[in-house]
């Protein structure tokens, strides 16, 4: 059958089948996103202790947005916590020092995260471990700068107490909304042509340029989006705990956990970081309750076993084991 383009057209059954695969993949992601968001939305009606659900949402947002830059473009920003810290401080300072209401402060935190990502955009020229090390160094520099700013603005090394902002219920529902927005943004990016361009750049930047992709601009889109959500998360946590300080806000352990959770689930897929964050944060929480002294040791052992058994993460290993099903995995 000749196509309108003068070539050899795809068999009709192949065409419709492939279109169906695309629809199933998008539908599955919508189901997953609703399956995550709706129970978390209902949680306040079921329990008074919202802390677990709240932090679970934070980790899912952090891992999902981290995946945009690490899984889709191949960068490994070891200093990812810088965006989180900048967001926390933007929120805290604007609320406490300048009296901005929390929702407005959170919007400014998002803008601050985006602004910092643009400031750091030149580091995207670096590759591999060099990029990772520079981003880590920048996170340390940010922490030092924040510590040394005038105490009447940032609270110096002691940080700020945001007692007037205390409203855990509202914070929780805003976090649910941010989670929904993050999952929607990630889905939009992954299923759009930008998502194809991002993965092309990740696999081979020269080849991507050869086929007409603007590599710099494509990386920048993912970088800015990946920086905005952790900044909001930093602000949300400041709002929830009513306290910020440089050590906690720029703690490298945040980046480490984001990397481990995301990799355990499987970078490069939408499902992987959600699954990884859910599973490992759940395990982390359980271990912490049972073994408060030895929790990090047990968590480390579990992570090592997971990496050995599932080197490509839970989702990646499943896709490798069942290649016929992988086309349906969002």
């Amino acid at each position: 059958m000749a196509s309108s383009l003068g070539g050899v057209a795809a068999p009709a059954e192949g065409r419709s089948g492939d279109a169906r695969v695309g629809r199933i993949r998008i539908s599955l992601w919508i189901v997953v996103a609703l399956g995550v968001v709706l129970p978390l939305l209902a949680a306040p009606a079921l329990t008074e202790n919202l802390s677990f659900s709240f932090y679970l949402m934070l980790w899912i947002i952090l891992c999902t947005s981290f995946n945009l830059v690490a899984g889709f473009t191949g960068y490994m920003p070891f200093g990812y916590v810088a965006f989180y810290g900048v967001g926390a401080y933007a929120t805290g300072v604007l609320h406490k020092t300048y009296g901005l209401p929390m929702p407005g402060a959170l919007v400014c935190a998002a803008l601050a995260g985006a602004a910092v990502s643009l400031l750091l955009a030149p580091t995207l020229r670096l590759k591999g471990v060099y990029f990772g090390i520079v981003s880590l160094a920048l996170a340390v520099i940010f922490r030092l700068v924040v510590s040394m700013l005038p105490e009447d603005i940032t609270g110096g090394s002691m940080g700020l107490i945001l007692a007037r902002a205390n409203d855990p219920q509202t914070t929780y529902y805003v976090t649910v909304a941010v989670l929904a927005a993050c999952l929607a943004a990630a889905g939009w990016l992954a299923f759009s042509r930008t998502g194809v361009a991002l993965r092309a750049v990740r696999d081979d930047a020269d080849a991507a340029a050869i086929v007409g992709i603007d590599v710099t601009r494509t990386r920048l889109k993912a970088w800015v989006l990946a920086a905005t959500f952790p900044a909001v998360v930093g602000g949300l946590e400041a709002w929830y705990t009513n306290a910020i300080d440089p050590e906690a806000s720029f703690n490298i352990l945040v980046t480490a956990k984001v990397i481990v959770y995301s990799m355990a689930g499987g970078l490069g897929t939408l499902l992987g970081p959600v699954l990884g964050a859910g599973a490992l944060y759940g395990i982390d929480h359980l271990i912490w309750q049972k073994f408060p002294v030895l929790n990090l040791m047990f968590l480390g052992i579990i992570i090592m076993v997971m990496i050995l058994v599932f080197p490509r993460g839970l989702v990646g290993s499943f896709a490798q084991r069942f290649p016929l099903l992988r086309r349906y995995i969002p």
Binding site: S3, L5, G7, A197
Partner: peptide, 24 residues
Amino acid sequence: AAPFTTGDASDAEVYERSAEWLNR
């Protein structure tokens, strides 16, 4: 599909052209 990430070809056209060339 990667060359079509910029430009205004419809999804159907992208698929049709990709399939045509994979057939060729």
